[in-house]
Structures are given as C-alpha cells and as structure tokens.
C-alpha cells in the first residue's frame, strides 16, 4: 500500500513538472523574469557605468544602432549624460523591489482577511466583504498619488502605500478558495476530531489555497510594478535621481519627439517584465486550476 502511494505521488509530481515545462507561456515568462532578476542581483557587475554619474558633455547620445551612437554607451545617455544601460539595469532592482514588497504586504493583509472570511463565515465574512467593497470603491491611482504627495515620495512609501491598497484581489480569491476547501470532507473530519482552528487553518486550509495565492501574488506583483511606474511617471512616486523605469520614461518625455528611444527603451523593459510575470501567473493558474480563470 505504501509503495503504491509513493508511486502515484511521483507520477503526479512528474506530470506536474512536465506540465510546467510543456507550458510555453510559463517557460517564456519564467525565462524573462529569471533573466531580469539576475540582472538586478548582478547590477554592480553588469552595469558598464555608474548609473548616477552625470556627464554634461555626453548628453543624449543615441544607442549603438543609431549612426551617432557608440559602443561606450550601448543604450546611449540621458539628458544629464548618464549611461542609459546602467540606469536600466539598476532600474530593474526598483521594479522588482516594489513588486515583491507591495505583493508581500498586500498578500499578508488580503490572505488573512480572505481566509478568515471564508473560514469563519457569518459576521466576519460580512465585515470582510464590506471592507473589500469599500476598498474597491476608492480610486487607487488617485488615493496613492495623494498620499505619496503628502507623505513624500520614496521607495518605502511607495511600497507601503501600494501594499496597503492592492489587497482586494487577494482577499476575494482567498475567501472563495477557503470557502471551497472548508466544505470538503477532510476539513469537516478534522473539525470533528477536534483539531484546533489554528491547526486546521495551517495544515488543511493553507496548503490547499497556496496555488491560488501564488497566482494572485504574481499578478498583483505585475500590477504594483505598473502602478509604481505610473506614479513615478507622474512625478509622485519614486523620486529622482533613482533610475525607476517610469521616471526614465517621464524624463525622456520632453525629448521623445526627437529621440523616441528615450521612452522606448525603459517602456519596453517595463512591458517585458510585466508581460513575463503575467505569463507566469496565467500559466500557473492554467496548470494548477484551469477552472479558476478570471
């Protein structure tokens, strides 16, 4: 019997593994994300120049594919003569940090709320559902902008504000997944045997909702990254001279009609990162719970 069960688990594990490797979206997404994470981690080694080093004599040098470009600044320089490639590389750190940080905070808040609502039901559920509605009614961009403007823009503030605003989807999904799991026989059995609530939550509920949690976390990470870029673009997010990609687009905006690459390069980087994270999230959902699309 025991040998039989090990056989089946290895079979399912192997098939999940092949399902992951066989899923184009996940593989492409994971590859890009991994590449960007590596770039961010190895920024000091990879960046050819100091991202903050201004050189007013070498301003607005176009990238190497332009006839005016040079190999010294592969992606050119910005309006202050800073090396664009180096800024792009360091910018990856900011986007990833924002993504992880905000998803972590909002994930914690949303999961606790959602799981409580789903598990306890009744009043708790009513309150949580109400809070979700309230949160959805508040315009995210507007509130985030206002708060960041008042408190002052910094990486920590942006992470905190986004984290405090983006928990709604976590709460919604965790609530419904918990509801689903809770009605299963084995949870009822655990309750009947007299397991403590905490134990049931940790050993029965959490392992079963963790797939959905991963999916939402990736999607919200992408969401936070886009929002940060938008805030920074509007001048109310991360502040100069930090090389946030949104800020880079904003700084290139004035010259974009003459030097379109100034906004194309950071924009493409942002687009690729968000696309890759979304592809991963969608893929994981397709693989683990195809019925939970949307």
């Amino acid at each position: 019997m025991s040998s039989g069960s090990t056989v089946t688990t290895t079979v399912t594990k192997a098939s999940i593994y092949t399902r992951f490797t066989g899923h184009q979206g996940v593989m492409i997404g994971a590859f890009i994300v991994l590449a960007i994470v590596l770039v961010a981690l190895l920024a000091p080694l990879l960046a050819p120049h100091d991202p903050y080093q201004q050189n007013l004599l070498a301003r607005l040098i176009p990238p190497v594919w332009d006839s005016r470009g040079s190999w010294d600044h592969v992606l050119g320089t910005d309006h202050l003569g800073r090396d664009y490639l180096s800024r792009l590389i360091y910018g990856a750190r900011i986007s990833l940090l924002i993504g992880f940080g905000a998803a972590l905070i909002s994930g914690l808040i949303g999961t606790v709320m959602g799981v409580m609502a789903g598990y306890f039901g009744g009043r708790v559920d009513m309150v949580v559902t109400f809070l979700i509605t309230v949160r959805l009614s508040m315009p995210v961009v507007l509130v985030a902008l206002a708060v960041v403007a008042i408190v002052g823009g910094s990486l920590q503030v942006v992470i905190t504000v986004l984290g405090l605003l983006l928990w709604d989807r976590f709460a919604v999904v965790m609530r419904s997944s918990t509801l689903q799991i809770r009605s299963m026989d084995y949870v009822a059995a655990a309750q009947a045997v007299g397991c403590s609530t905490k134990r049931i939550l940790m050993t029965e509920i959490m392992p079963n909702v963790v797939n959905n949690l991963i999916v939402i976390a990736t999607l919200e990470m992408a969401h936070a990254i886009i929002l940060e870029a938008a805030l920074s673009f509007l001048g109310l997010g991360v502040q100069p001279p930090l090389p946030s990609w949104g800020l880079m687009v904003s700084e290139g905006k004035d010259m974009m009609l003459f030097e379109a690459w100034l906004i194309t390069i950071p924009g493409v980087a942002l687009f690729l990162l968000v696309l890759a994270i979304n592809l991963m999230g969608d893929g994981v959902r397709d693989i683990t719970a195809p019925e939970n699309r949307n």
Binding site: A222, L234, G246, I263, L270, L275, N278
Partner: peptide, 10 residues
C-alpha cells in the same frame, strides 16, 4: 496579454 502588460502612460 498585451493589454494587461502595457503601461497605459507608455
């Protein structure tokens, strides 16, 4: 997929 990854300001 494009629409979801495209920052609207960009």
């Amino acid at each position: 997929v494009m629409g979801q990854a495209l920052p609207s300001f960009w």
